[in-house]
Amino acid sequence: MTLLITVFAAVIATVKWYNREDDNMKLGILCFLYWGAAIMWLVDALFEYAELGMEYFRPAAADMLNDAFLGLSVVALGLVIWLVRLLITDPKGSVRRALKKD
């Protein structure tokens, strides 16, 4: 479930990046962040599948719910990392302008 949610986040971020008007939002970073995590979870899933076999596709409801909660938390953490970097690098100069304002 965590892998699935991360892949969806990566795909949405990539589509948004492809349709960007300019590079001010630095969406590429968000794409790399999610794709990196998705690839790593894919490997984790493959090893788990090799160990559990078909049982891997029949998780308990409680485990699925916990994994979904974790997946959403991971997406939120990725967004926070991206947002903090965006505000620090301030490519559009919005933060600098706001700070200079009287």
Binding site: I29, F32, L33, W35, G36, I39
Partner: peptide, 11 residues
């Protein structure tokens, strides 16, 4: 680096 740091941080 972004893929590696991002993946490592989220994991």
């Amino acid at each position: 680096t972004w893929m590696l740091w991002g993946g490592a941080a989220l994991l």
